[in-house]
Simulated scan of single mutants.
Amino acid sequence: MTSSVPWRQRLSTGTEDIQDEVVRRYRETREGVAYVPAMIWGTLQTEAYATVILGQVVEFLGVPDDVPAGVAKRMERQRVLYDGEHHYDVVLGEQALYTDIGGPEVMGGQIDRILRDIGLPSLTLGIVPVSARVNMHPVHAFNMYGDEVHVELVSSGVTVTEPDEVALYRKAFGRMREAALYGDAAREILGQAGSFWAGARRG
C-alpha cells in the first residue's frame, strides 16, 4: 500500500511534532537505509544546517514557525548513532556536499561533522561521485525503516509498504550502493569538499 499526507497537514502545528514522530521511528528501527542525492541526511546534520533546512520548510509551506524546537528534536534523533544498538547504511550523492545550505561556515562545519562520524560502527556511509557510472536512472531521496519506505515530495510525504514496491526500493538502493565510494575514498571526497568551503570562507 502507498499512502500520502500533505506536508501542510502534517506540519499544521509546526516542525516539532513530526520530528518527534521521526525520533520514534528511528528508535524502533535497528537497521535503517537511506539514499540522499542532493542534501545531507538528517541524522548527520549539524544544528546550524538543520536550522537552515527547517527554516526553509517553514517559509516555503507557510506553517507555524517553531524551528528551534524542531531542530532540538532532530538533534535528539541523532542519539541513535551513539547508543550501540542501531546501524544505518547511507548513500549520499557528492552533490549533497556542495548544495549550499546556509553558506560556507555552515557547510564547512557540516563537512567536518561527517568526517568526524564516518568511522562510527553504527554508520556505513558511501558517497556517489558526480562522475560515477550508475546502473540506475536518477531517483529521488528515500529512507527505509524495516519494511516501510518514506519519500519526501514537494507537497507531501509518501509511505510505501507494498512488498513488491519496497523490493524495488531495495534494488534501487543496491545499485546506488554499487556506485558509491567508501572508507578512504569517501574521506578524500569529503576532504575536497571541505577544502572548497574553506576557500569560499576565505574568498
Rank of each mutant, 00 (worst) to 15 (best):
V57T: 14
L54M: 12
L44R: 01
V71N: 11
V57H: 08
V5K: 15
T29F: 09
D20E: 13
G108R: 13
S131R: 09
G146A: 11
E31I: 10
E105M: 00
T161G: 07
D65F: 07
Q19A: 12
A48D: 14
M136P: 04
Q110M: 07
G199V: 01
G109H: 03
A198E: 13
R177M: 03
L44G: 03
I189V: 15
D100G: 03
A179Y: 07
M1W: 11
A132S: 10
Q9C: 02
F142T: 07
T99F: 02
R170E: 14
V91M: 03
V134H: 09
R202Y: 04
L61E: 11
G93V: 01
P64T: 11
L92S: 02
V63D: 07
E152G: 13
V22H: 06
V130R: 14
M1V: 09
E28W: 02
Q45G: 06
T161N: 11
P129K: 02
S195R: 10
L115H: 01
I101P: 06
I53Y: 05
A69M: 13
V36R: 00
V36E: 02
M136H: 14
T159P: 04
W197G: 07
T51N: 06
G191W: 01
D147L: 08
V67I: 04
V36H: 00
A167S: 15
Y82M: 07
G203V: 02
E76W: 08
S131H: 11
Q95R: 06
Y182N: 04
R74W: 03
I127N: 01
E148K: 15
M75V: 15
V67L: 04
Q56S: 11
N143V: 09
L61Q: 12
T43C: 03
P163N: 08
A179W: 04
R30P: 02
N143T: 13
E188G: 06
S156Q: 10
Y35H: 08
I53M: 10
E94R: 12
M176Y: 14
T43H: 01
A96W: 00
S156P: 05
G109R: 01
Q9W: 10
G70W: 01
S12W: 11
T13E: 15
R24K: 05
P68G: 09
T124W: 00
I18Q: 12
R133Q: 14
Y82P: 08
R74D: 09
V33H: 10
V58T: 10
Q9A: 05
E59Q: 12
E178V: 06
H150P: 01
Q9L: 09
A141W: 00
K73A: 15
I118R: 06
L11W: 12
A172C: 12
Y88T: 09
R8Q: 15
P68W: 06
Q95V: 04
R25H: 08
I40L: 05
G126W: 00
G93P: 03
V154D: 14
V52L: 03
R116M: 04
L97G: 02
E85A: 11
A72W: 06
P138R: 06
G102Q: 06
A96P: 05
A180Y: 01
V134G: 13
